[in-house]
Write a protein that binds this DNA or RNA. Structure first.
Ligand code: MN
Ligand code: MN
Ligand code: MN
Ligand code: MN
Lengths: 219, 219
DNA sequence: TTATTTTTTTAGATTTGTCTAAATTATAAT
DNA sequence: ATTATAATTTAGACAAATCTAAAAAAATAA
């Protein structure tokens, strides 16, 4: 089956929301996609027709097996393009999400397989998010935000928020990137800021805002 | 101003038809775009509203200065992507046109400038068609089809039809590619076939059909 | 349990891009 | 100069994707 750009954006949004909350509501989707709830209802009815999700009026929606596979195909395209934009075209990684939102809808399977090969079959995109393989399999990363990390618990930076602009600049200055080993030494309740220890570096301070945009995997 | 995918496809089609025939008709466009003449009329009225072309009901259409600039932007994107697909992803050049038809509509100027840089500022796409620069300037190639070339007139292959599938295979077998020096030794009126001389090679035979899909610049 | 608030759906309208069938205009033929 | 043919436009319809305003249902509070 073939999906329009609008349909693909809905499918991807449902998939994303479904990760944290298995049942996705109309209002959640409307917020995620910047549309009105009435438009969401219309689209859900159309996608139900196409048999890729279970939609129960008033009770929310959930992608079925086919729907999930389609979503992972779109996510694969999105993340491969993001990797291309950063690794080959030398974009900063806070600029690529918007462009990949468009590129992900180019629908040639052969294009994506060749792109994957050209890029050397990357496992993760520039934000640390795993790239599904051509059959839709993807490693489930179990990472939490640095803000949620316990004190004195060593962890490695495994991801960053893909939407926030200006993040690369501040992380470069703080000498933090994906793969950096970190540990929270002190947390201030006053403003949520953190004192962080990085190997061979003096203690550095991170704001709550910043810590919420960095994701880590505890060791 | 911003243009939809449908609008961009019309603009590009008008530009192409306008090259051989300054005044473009509704039926020509309808054939080129595989739509009905009535749909063309509707779109021409919309594009006239946007002031990128001169459209006189019953008398055809012509892009104005703004329209031509927009067209060249789309053509630039199309041809840069084609170059990328062949040079980097190793597609055969008969497969790339369809994919570039989609990629050309991704609308980030920064993306295209970086892609151009990444590719080393190529001057022509895989079919020998010139790539406009970022301000829309493009060398005007004056090439004719090999079928139209005069006998005994040396010429160099400067382009191939970008739409015909199977062309790379036969040209590889005949040892013809862009840059090859050719000369027609004999033309058979019976079937329009040609006897061609290529440097250091025995005479080869080309069908009329094939000769019409190869473009040359007389020396 | 009833009333209030919030969420969601329905009804009806709009824009874009397409179509078919009919009417109109231009062009070619007699 | 009519008439016939071909090209083009208009009229009216439709699907996709969106919206606003109103109605309905569900969740929450009193
Ligand atoms: Mn998108
Ligand atoms: Mn990403
Ligand atoms: Mn196109
Ligand atoms: Mn081309």
């Amino acid at each position: 089956m073939n999906f329009s750009i609008a349909e693909e954006n809905y499918i991807k949004a449902i998939w994303r929301l479904q990760q944290s909350d298995s049942n996705v509501t109309t209002n959640e989707l409307s917020a995620e996609l910047q549309t009105k709830p009435a438009s969401v209802t219309d689209m859900l009815k159309r996608l139900k027709e196409k048999k890729i999700l279970n939609y129960e009026p008033y009770y929310g929606v959930k992608l079925n097996t086919d729907g999930k596979k389609i979503a992972l195909g779109i996510i694969r395209r999105h993340r491969l393009w993001e990797y291309f934009l950063v690794e080959k075209l030398k974009f900063e990684w806070d600029a690529v999400h918007v462009i990949a939102e468009e590129l992900e809808h180019v629908s040639s399977p052969e294009l994506i397989e060749r792109l994957d090969h050209f890029l050397g079959f990357p496992k993760a995109d520039p934000h640390g998010d795993p790239i599904p393989d051509s059959s839709g399999r993807m490693e489930t990363t179990r990472h939490i935000s640095l803000h949620q990390l316990k004190e004195q618990q060593p962890a490695v930076v495994s991801g960053v928020n893909d939407q926030s602009s200006g993040l690369p600049e501040i992380l470069r200055q703080k000498k933090i990137s994906i793969g950096t080993k970190v540990e929270i030494k002190q947390r201030f309740l006053f403003d949520g800021s953190l004192e962080i220890k990085i190997r061979n570096q003096p203690l550095i301070t991170l704001s709550e805002q910043l810590a919420k945009n960095i994701f880590v995997t505890p060791l």
